[in-house]
Amino acid sequence: MKCFTRFSVNKASQAALCAFALLLSVLLGLSLGSARLSLPETVLGILEGDSTANGRILLYVRLPRVLAAVFAGSALAVSGAVIQEVLANPLASPGTIGVNAGAGFGAALCSASLGSVAPSSAMHSLMPLASFSGALSAVIIVSSISERAGSSKITLILSGVAISSLLSAGTNLITTLFPDSLLRTHSFQIGGLSGVSFESLFPAGWLILIFILAVLIMGGELDVLSLGEVSATSLGLNVKACKFMFLASSAMLAGSAVSFAGLVGFVGLIVPHVARMVAGTGSSRRLIVLSALIGGAFFEGCDIASRMLFSPYELPTGIVTAFLGAPFFLFLLIKRRRGYRY
């Protein structure tokens, strides 16, 4: 049946192009910095391990940071794509419906209450769970408020804004009252990757991999869920359970990213839109794969910019994502109004 397979070459080349962009950003992220390395030096440095200066820079500074950027970017983008599909709302994202703020509140609370007593290795495992709990609570509160208040797309965003403000105030209160908390740093509030190590990255990194895979496996359910509640129910889907499962997965993804990258904005909002422009509509699995690839490449690109723009000074990466993300989102809104479709 020709018609159904006609686009397969295009689809494969889209994914390959995005994977190439991700690989390029990773290589650039490894070679660029205060000590610039050529591509052969980079590869050699990684192979040599910590026996050389270049190897130590790559293994202990750049590689964890590059991996953190790729994981965080992919997790936030996939989380945003899932939230937008489940809630059928193009304005929804971990940032706009309070998931990020909830994750930040959970992380701040965990850091303030356990930071001084628990060993740092235990904290690295506890932080993603605390962020997840905060993110999940926020998404449950926001979606139940908007359902009760009429379930419109604007109600959801407005209740997200209100809950985000409340949780951000809570996070600020904690960091003010507990100035020794690990999260007092400015870069957590804006989102940044300075000081990320393999130890702080990996519990969250594994969770991100597992949940991206889980969402991919359940792509068929996500496709049907995006048809709307009545159609999905008549096609045999348990809509309430599926919605909860997807929102919990996206809270886990965003929570894990926030636990080591801080409150990064806009990645989860704009990357799914870009992925949809590239991939078209109709397949959630394709959307998730492209969101993960583009999200990783985008956030790594932003991190390179944050390190290089005012070198040797470094900007929190969240500033760069906001400077790039906000105008791009406005551009999308204006284009949509003029009848642009993707």
Binding site: F4, A88, L227, S231, S234, L235, G236, T281, G282
Partner: peptide, 28 residues
């Protein structure tokens, strides 16, 4: 859903290609 199908009234439609929508009929 394998026994009963339902064509809803005034659907809030999803932005998907027609062939994808019709294929979803096979989901159950």
């Amino acid at each position: 859903a394998q026994m009963v199908s339902y064509l809803p009234q005034a659907q809030s439609y999803a932005n998907v290609p027609i062939e994808v929508l019709v294929m979803h009929g096979r989901f159950p």
